[in-house]
Amino acid sequence: MAYSEKVIEHYENPKNVGTLDQNDPSVGTGLVGAPACGDVMRLQIKVNEAGVIEDARFKTFGCGSAIASSSLATEWIKGKTVDEAFAIKNSQIAEELSLPPVKIHCSVLAEDAIKSAIEDYRRKRAAREAAAREQGNS
């Protein structure tokens, strides 16, 4: 199968490969996919006080399109608010990378990874706020 130029560009020069500290309260981690299915994406975001994603990192086990989808996803969400990032659709990723039908699931996985990272971040923040309230009450 021939890859689009954008897929090749992201695959050869992936943006934002790496790991953020999972235990940092401002970091949200999403781990989606399964080794048995041939693709696993881990996408992490670091969110500032204003709710803006100031850093994003990914690591992906998968084909070229999966790697390109995650690289593009991290690029797109950097600088966006959490709510803006949550609204990103897989179809936008698929369109930007000109993914063929058999590779659409790669973009779906990237959208899931963004949402999963944001949900993790929100969960951590809610837990933190609840803990703070409890401390305030006591």
Binding site: Y3, Y11, G38, F61, G62, C63, G64, A66, I67
Partner: peptide
């Protein structure tokens, strides 16, 4: 192990 086959073929 830990590397996907098609991803490697692309590399």
């Amino acid at each position: 192990a830990f590397v996907e086959g098609e991803g490697l073929m692309m590399a």
